[in-house]
């Protein structure tokens, strides 16, 4: 089967600085791929390239067999098939929840209001926020806003969803409600590309872990194997830093001066 997404020898520069180098990555339809790596390793940039928010400088990127790195690419059309959810939700502050959800379906896809609204309301109900239909983003908690942002992308009926550290700005209590929504999508067989620092979540939801550093993919592995026996030394080091917090010994003595 042809992969849904295929990066080949993909390169990206910010000025002189190379942020993505020779990326080769294939994602099959229905697969959940979690990208891990230290800050600044290029994992967010990789997602943004797939949505046309960043321009690439070389290599090839295919979506469902169609090459995207040409001058003829209609990114508006591609973006309808590739949903993107951001760290800080970025809902439109001057619009109610339902208007946020309907802007794309009505203006971009020119769908009929009744049908689009029925879908939006069904999705809202699914994430437990139907009662917030007419609220404004400012009246909602971060977790609620992020769930709405996910629904906003889903309303476009995308083929793949990109999640860019979507729980990084949330209080711990709200992380759960957002992760549950994402896990629900994974269970339904939606293709997901997830950038996150939630290690337990990555292990639970991923079909495959991609580990990146300094713009390169160092390792692709099954989640259980990645978390128990990572192949690359850099990944081992990375995981040790995360487990350091969990195994932090209790402070026993305090010297009071």
């Amino acid at each position: 089967m042809n992969p849904l997404i295929e990066f080949q020898g993909f390169n990206k520069f910010f000025g002189q600085h190379q942020v993505l180098a020779d990326i080769d990555l294939k994602v099959q339809a229905g697969e959940v791929v979690v990208i891990l790596g230290p800050s600044g390793c290029g994992k967010s940039t990789l997602l943004r390239c797939l949505n046309g928010l960043e321009e690439a400088q070389g290599g090839s990127l295919r979506l469902d067999g169609q090459e995207l790195l040409g001058p003829d690419t209609d990114w508006r059309q591609v973006r309808q098939r590739v949903g993107m959810v951001f760290q800080s939700y970025h809902l439109f502050g001057h619009m109610s929840v339902i208007d946020n959800l309907l802007l794309g379906p009505l203006k971009v896809q020119k769908r009929e209001r009744r049908e689009a609204q029925a879908q939006a309301e069904a999705l809202l109900a699914r994430v437990g926020l139907l009662d917030k239909r007419d609220a404004f983003p400012r009246q909602l908690s971060g977790g609620q806003q992020q769930r709405i942002a996910i629904v906003r992308s889903l309303c476009m009926n995308p083929q793949v969803m990109l999640f860019d550290e979507v729980t990084a700005a949330l209080d711990p209590e709200m992380v759960k409600e957002v992760l549950q929504v994402i896990q629900g999508l994974a269970r339904e067989g939606m293709t997901l590309l997830i950038v996150t620092h939630e290690m337990a979540f990555a292990r639970a939801v991923a079909d495959r872990i991609v580990f990146m550093e300094a713009g390169r993919i160092l390792e692709q592995n099954h989640p259980e194997r990645f978390f128990t026996q990572p192949q690359s030394a850099r990944a081992q080091q990375f995981l040790e830093k995360f487990s350091f917090v969990e195994s932090l010994p209790k402070t026993l003595h305090k010297e009071l001066s």
Partner: peptide, 27 residues
């Protein structure tokens, strides 16, 4: 108007004109 609003508008496929009309100018 925060730049992030533009990205979020583009990410759902809005054209530059639609972005101006529905996202930038009202805010």
């Amino acid at each position: 108007v925060p730049r992030a609003q533009l990205e979020s508008g583009r990410s759902i496929g809005l054209s530059e004109g639609q972005l101006l009309r529905h996202v930038i100018l009202p805010q």
